[in-house]
């Protein structure tokens, strides 16, 4: 086949070194393997190194947000502030109502908040969704601070959000109730219909309830705890005319994407189906 000079490529002297001959991404693979080895060998050290990095990311996000807010229209900001103040007032009223109901139920049940006298543990969140796709939180409290597997994690307004699933010396992992496939017993609606909540990821859950139960969007979902603890609200009810049950789509009250702290307390075993001890070396 005749070749034309315009088709030829002029090659400069190619001084390929060993590193440039490796496939692209080799450096990234080495870094990933080092991190994996660190997690297998010393997960505590890994999270000690990463915690400040995640914290720096949070600080940059907060700064960026405040800078961008400065460019917004003043009237738009005022309107947004007013709307947020109304929401805060509504949530405060709801919280008071729930606290009264909680106190009444404790009187009825004869339950006290801390039977064993152990205090709650406040822990900061190191990593959360959406950086993590596994509906889990990494928190900066571990064995040394009294954290144990099975403890229940609460977010703002004392809302249960998950259970401690693994513990290191100074870090722990909280598996959120919205973890895909994770079942939790609970109640739905004003009639307190018993349902099984199944996590569907991203802070959402689903449950099946009889259509005749009359559960509608806006109804509250509860889980066991000291009495009944509100965990979320029904946002949609999917009904199939050929079925006698309806599927409830539930969103948790707690905003998992901005949670910066959690409160840990004993009592998760009340709801937790028997916990099979994980034998994996990955903590």
């Amino acid at each position: 086949m005749p070749t034309f000079s315009s088709m030829r490529k002029t090659y400069l002297p190619n001084h390929k070194t060993f590193f440039s001959s490796l496939p692209g991404g080799t450096g990234a693979l080495l870094i990933a393997l080092v991190v994996l080895a660190l997690r297998l060998a010393s997960p505590e050290l890994l999270w000690r190194l990463l915690a400040p990095v995640f914290g720096a990311g949070e600080a940059v996000s907060a700064q960026t947000r405040s800078v961008l807010d400065g460019f917004r229209n003043a009237s738009e900001l005022a309107e947004r502030t007013e709307k947020l103040e109304r929401e805060i007032a509504a949530l405060s009223n709801q919280k008071e109502a729930l606290a009264r109901e909680n106190a009444d139920l404790r009187i009825i049940l004869g339950d006290s908040p801390r039977k064993d006298g152990k205090a709650s543990i406040l822990a900061g969140v190191v990593a959360r969704p959406p950086e993590s796709p596994y509906d889990a939180l990494v928190i900066a409290a571990g064995r040394e601070e009294g954290v144990e597997v099975g403890q229940e994690a609460f977010g703002e307004a004392d809302t249960p959000i998950g259970l401690v699933s693994s513990v290191l010396d100074h870090f722990s992992r909280v598996t959120l109730l919205s973890t895909p496939g994770l079942p939790t017993g609970g109640w739905a609606g004003p009639g307190k219909i018993a349902v099984t909540l199944i996590g569907t990821g991203g802070g959402t859950l689903r449950a099946s309830a009889p259509r005749s139960a009359g559960i509608s969007p806006g109804d509250t979902i509860y889980v066991p705890g000291p009495g009944m603890l509100p965990i979320g609200t029904v946002v949609r009810v999917d009904e199939d005319p050929s079925s006698s049950s309806a599927t409830l789509r539930i969103r948790m009250f707690a905003n998992l994407f901005s949670t910066s702290w959690v409160l840990l307390r004993d009592g998760g075993h009340v709801r937790l189906m028997p916990l099979i001890a994980a034998t994996s070396t990955l903590q």
Binding site: P23, G24, G25, T26, A28, L29, I31, A32, L33, V35, L36, L38, R39, L46, L50, A127, E131, S132, P133, Y134, A136, L163, S165, S166, R173, T175, T179, G181, L182, P183, L272, M273, P274, L275, I276, A277, A278, S280, L282, Q283
Partner: peptide
């Protein structure tokens, strides 16, 4: 396409940071 080992590296790093195998233990019998 430019860095062919990058997807595998990113996947390993993702799971090294965030994967929690102990979470599977909470799903009894499922």
């Amino acid at each position: 396409l430019y860095l062919p080992l990058l997807p595998l590296s990113a996947g390993i790093l993702f799971d090294a940071l965030y994967y929690a195998p102990s979470a599977n233990a909470l799903v009894l019998g499922a």
